[in-house]
């Protein structure tokens, strides 16, 4: 179970990972459309008033492309034998935990709670925010952090398997790649989607 959840790249073939990753990406994009969520950056997830399926799908395609671009440069630098398919499967499978997060906005639960908090985000009015809204936002934030950790640990494990990375340099390269992918994806989504 631990292998399946955190280290699938050590066990499963690239065909299995590719198939699973593509299915998860499509389902994840559809869930984001259903529950009004945007993945507007490699590390971002935001509840929005409305969205279209093509937007959520394009969000994910841009995020995956940015991850593949920077992670493949880093992995090639670490190990010239690294295959592009292993970096690609890492990027598409690692994002799966994020695709589960839109579920928490069922019936616009998180969206309504965050709207209420924004509406009363004033020291004089803050007491008017209901307890349930606080609870929903705090719980959603905690779950999002947990899923972010899961996503990054999957990404790093895939990165290590793809490049046979060892030591401290790969950790720096991985962090840098993630940061650059986040910046580029934010820019591209803002510009084109």
């Amino acid at each position: 179970m631990k292998t399946l959840l955190f280290k699938p790249f050590e066990k499963y073939s690239e065909k299995t990972l590719l198939f699973a990753g593509l299915i998860f990406t499509i389902i994840g994009s559809y869930l984001a459309y259903l529950f009004k969520t945007r993945f507007d950056g490699v590390l971002d997830i935001h509840i929005v008033p409305n969205t279209f399926f093509y937007q959520t799908l394009l969000d994910n395609l841009i995020n995956i492309s940015c991850l593949v671009l920077f992670l493949s440069i880093s992995t090639k630098y670490i190990n010239k034998k690294t295959r592009l398919i292993d970096v690609f499967t890492t990027a598409i499978v690692a994002r799966t935990p994020y695709y589960l997060l839109p579920f928490f906005n069922i019936n616009g639960l998180v969206g309504k709670a965050s709207e209420e908090i924004i509406q009363y985000a004033n020291p004089e009015l803050i007491s008017q925010i209901s307890f349930s809204s606080w609870l929903i936002i705090i719980l959603f934030s905690l779950i999002s952090i947990l899923f972010l950790v899961w996503y990054i640990s999957l990404l790093f494990n895939g990165f290590k398997v793809a490049s046979n990375a060892k030591g401290k340099t790969p950790i720096i390269l991985f962090s840098l790649s993630l940061l650059l992918a986040e910046i580029l994806s934010k820019f591209l989504i803002f510009k084109f989607n």
Partner: peptide, 9 residues
């Protein structure tokens, strides 16, 4: 029962 990159590594 391992992936190709694991075996290559």
């Amino acid at each position: 029962g391992k992936s190709y990159p694991t075996v290559r590594n």
